[in-house]
Amino acid sequence: MSGIIEIIFAEFNYWIYVTLMMIGFYAMIAKKNLIKKVIGANIFQTAIFLFYISLAEVKGGTAPILLHGHDGADAAHKAVSEVIYVNPLPHVLILTAIVVAVSTTAVALALIIKIYEEYGSLEEDVILAYRRQLQPEFSEHARQKQEGEQ
């Protein structure tokens, strides 16, 4: 019983991150609402983070914080020989990546606010229709200039 569950468990994180990535990816492409796209991006990115953290896991490992306080090098070696630490490298990478993700989200949200101020909507198709109406070939400036000359 527990053996089967162990097998499922062994791959379970991978299944979950695949599912989450697909959900997030789908939301990024298919959802018309801009906020939903950003939510999707967040899910997508966290799914990848989950993958990295899963990589770092070592069975029976503890958090990569040395367990002895500050007693010096010898103690450190002793501690290492007794304790298995999980892989710290993916953690560091993901710390960086989380920051990148939040920065991207912040920029995306700022863009969304600007878009809303300009078009009064967060739906992609509404915005698109509005832009078509405006005849994108002529920029604002060119149109004013033309009118000025006539």
């Binding site: 062994a10 791959e11 991978y14 299944w15 695949v18 990535m21 697909m22 990589l55 069975k59 892989n87």
Partner: peptide, 27 residues
């Protein structure tokens, strides 16, 4: 696109080191 990406992920998943495996190359 999602199915393609998912397919690729699952395809790759077959050869990923097992979860929590201390013998994994990364560790």
């Amino acid at each position: 696109a999602v199915i393609l990406a998912g397919g690729m992920l699952i395809y790759a998943g077959q050869d990923l080191p097992a979860f929590g495996d201390p013998e994994s190359p990364a560790y």
